[in-house]
Design a protein around this nucleic acid. Structure first.
Lengths: 189, 189
DNA sequence: TCGATAAGAGACGCAACGTATCTAAAGGAG
DNA sequence: CTCCTTTAGATACGTTGCGTCTCTTATCGA
């Protein structure tokens, strides 16, 4: 028998990969420690040595494998292009995790999530948006003073709402609608 | 021993009440058939005779006890008042169920919910909004033609987003912001 | 080469699931 | 009022997944 044993970093990587694959395979509500352990060809104890429960394991897998919204600021030279680029990034980030998973974690583990993934996304989104708006204001595209934090958060909030509520992939046209029919008319000088 | 046995409608009512109370007491993730049965002073079999699982039971309890968004249209004589009245109703409807419960059901049972509670709310909301906008247009407050379905859904979508994402009760000021800083500027003639 | 560390196998008790069986109340039919 | 059907409520079953332990032994560093 190949009694190869992985350890340390290599093992941890395998475990998180297995968790991520299992998530994709069976979905969050049906993901079990058993299932992940089996997929990683190890035993549950190995998982429990690292993460106290299912949510923490999935959270760790997300941190490792989901594209965390990067703080990189799109710069297309005009507000509209920047907005669409940002919204596309937010959308694909949320869709990579999957609304089912997001709902599951929010319902089971609200408090801790509160301090990790979700607000991270919202905060980073707000920072990026802030730079985009600053630049647009310099170009004279908008009147920055009129834009309250709620308005600034509007585009990403709407995208989040759509992804969470409608369970299908979000068509690009929706992003365009949000930008052209809602946000731009609201902020144009 | 009082071997009183309830039956039929009266029993069903008790069961749903127990489920609703249990939901409030322990929250959706910790709600068990055991717990509900105990609270109703009966056995799990009685529950399973009526509902195949936890989600259906909770769904039934919600239909029975949560204030389904009524189709009644507020009429304060001006758009702003109508909007705030509608948003307050949507907010209290969502908060009565609780975001934890909504997330739980969305993550576990998406497909079936898809055909019941959630879109019901969204549809009714859209109908009410449509009447409100029609009236405002007649009064000359807005240009109805410019309002796309997405814009019409904006206020309720934002409220839904807030309730689902921030886990605290939604301050009334947020509704005012949504109406005054976002929706009205967007639709005013 | 040896010793410390920790992987992996497995068993534990617990909780909740969903099903099935049994008894005796409840309520309707005559 | 009596009988007969329905079904409440109690209880027990097997299953799954949880989280905790224990034990052997592979792996790695000293």
């Amino acid at each position: 028998m190949t009694a190869r044993r992985r350890r340390g970093e290599a093992l941890e990587e395998s475990l998180l990969q297995a968790a991520w694959d299992e998530l994709a395979a069976v979905g969050y509500p049906k993901l079990t420690m058993e299932g992940v352990a089996a997929r990683a060809k190890t035993s549950r104890a190995v998982l429990y040595r690292r993460w106290p429960n299912r949510v923490e394991l999935v959270l760790a897998a997300m941190r490792r494998h989901a594209p965390m919204l990067s703080g990189e600021v799109p710069d297309t030279g005009e507000l509209r292009g920047d907005l669409l680029a940002l919204l596309r990034r937010v959308t694909s980030g949320l869709e990579a995790i999957g609304s089912e998973t997001i709902h599951g974690m929010l319902s089971e583990y609200i408090r801790d999530l509160d301090a990790t993934v979700y607000p991270h996304g919202r905060r980073v989104g707000a920072q990026v948006m802030s730079v985009i708006l600053e630049r647009a204001a310099e170009r004279g595209e908008i009147d920055r003073a009129k834009i309250t934090p709620r308005i600034a958060g509007l585009p990403t909030d709407l995208v989040r709402h759509e992804v969470l509520i409608t369970q299908r992939p979000l068509p690009d046209g929706v992003l365009v609608e949000i930008v052209d029919d809602i946000f731009l008319p609201l902020v144009r000088a």
